[in-house]
Computed example of a mutant assay.
Amino acid sequence: MTTPHPRAFVVGHPIAHSRSPLIHGHWLAEHGLAGTYERIDVPPDAFPAFVRGLREAGFAGGNVTIPHKEAAFRLAEVLTLRAERIGAVNTLWFEDGRLHGDNTDAPGFLAHLDASLGAAWPEATGVAGGRAALVLGAGGAARAILVGLLELGLPRLIVANRSAERAESLTALDPTRVTAIAWGSVPAHLPETGLLINTTALGMAGQDALALDLAPLPGEAAVADIVYVPLETPLLAAARARGLPAVDGLGMLLHQAVPGFARWFGRTPHVTPALRARIVADLEGHG
């Protein structure tokens, strides 16, 4: 009897916009692997049954996106420590007969910073030595990024959100290193910021721009935006105009996909210029 080819998926609601099939399809072709990666639209009320049926459907695992990440966290049988801290799962796989869950957004974001700024960016930006990493937004992406920065050992993290209560809730991740500030206080904290990260939808196509004067940022600071439509957000354009390194959101999407592919298909892929160019072309074709 022949072994069936590995099957993987991305599940969400809606899901038609997902670029994950393009990413994983590129890697399957690049490595000459037989396997499939498919989009599956599942409404929230049907998600638990979908997860319970994964093994019977022949899936090796898959990615989970909005609005199912918290539900996947509850349904996974084994969680990584990172997933436990974040409280959300975006990658599922079977191991030793059990369904495992991880959140790869945190390492994906950090890997993109390393690729964009060089591995010494914590020292170069000053965040290793006491300057703040300032995170705008308090949703799931902000939480994942904060956990990643905490794992990296950064001593000082600040989170700002229009809903102060949501920002305050994130200080529980590490009350000694994470501080919440009011949204209106962001400009006053820029002079002490070495890394500014936008995790809000501001600047995304169809949304208002993030209105923030970057003049107070130190000359060594870096600016990152997890928005990737458009690739060059007004925030990143303002950073480049000031001569600061600007890190777009596409790399996080590409790098977070690496661990899952390795789990399902048995090969660790690389984020290459060719892959990035392919996704950029697709984004522009649908713009």
Rank of each mutant, 00 (worst) to 15 (best):
W27E: 00
D96T: 13
R82H: 04
E77D: 15
V89K: 01
A57M: 14
G35L: 00
E30Y: 04
D96E: 15
W93V: 03
V42C: 14
R74A: 09
L54P: 04
H100F: 13
L54E: 07
L81W: 07
W93R: 05
P67A: 12
A49L: 10
G61S: 06
P44N: 07
P48L: 00
T36S: 09
L33V: 14
T65C: 09
G35H: 02
V78Y: 11
F59A: 11
V89F: 01
D96G: 13
A34S: 10
H26P: 09
K69R: 12
T36N: 02
A72H: 09
F59H: 11
G58V: 05
A76G: 10
Y37R: 01
V64Y: 10
R55V: 06
A29G: 13
A34C: 05
L81R: 15
E38L: 11
K69I: 10
H100K: 14
A57Q: 15
N90F: 02
P44G: 06
A29S: 13
A46K: 13
R74S: 05
F73G: 00
G61I: 04
D41E: 14
F59P: 06
E95V: 11
V64R: 12
P48G: 01
L79V: 10
A49E: 12
T80A: 11
R52V: 08
T80G: 15
E84Y: 05
Y37N: 00
I86H: 00
E38P: 07
N90G: 06
A76W: 06
A49I: 05
I40V: 15
T36Q: 05
F94R: 03
E95C: 12
A57I: 07
A83I: 03
R74G: 05
I66R: 09
L81P: 15
V64D: 10
L28F: 04
A34Q: 09
D41H: 04
K69T: 08
A57Y: 07
A46S: 15
A57L: 13
E56S: 14
D96V: 08
E56I: 08
P48F: 01
G87M: 11
F47L: 05
G32Y: 01
G53Q: 03
G53H: 04
G53P: 06
P48T: 01
A83W: 03
A88H: 02
A57R: 15
V42Y: 08
H68G: 05
H100C: 15
A29N: 11
K69D: 09
I66C: 06
E95Q: 15
G32E: 01
R52T: 14
D45W: 09
V89T: 02
V64A: 10
F73I: 00
A34F: 03
A88C: 06
R39T: 07
A76I: 10
H100T: 13
H26R: 13
G62T: 02
R82M: 05
F50T: 09
G53W: 01
E95K: 14
E56K: 14
R74N: 04
G87V: 12
H26K: 09
I86Q: 00
R52W: 11
A71H: 07
L99I: 03
K69E: 08
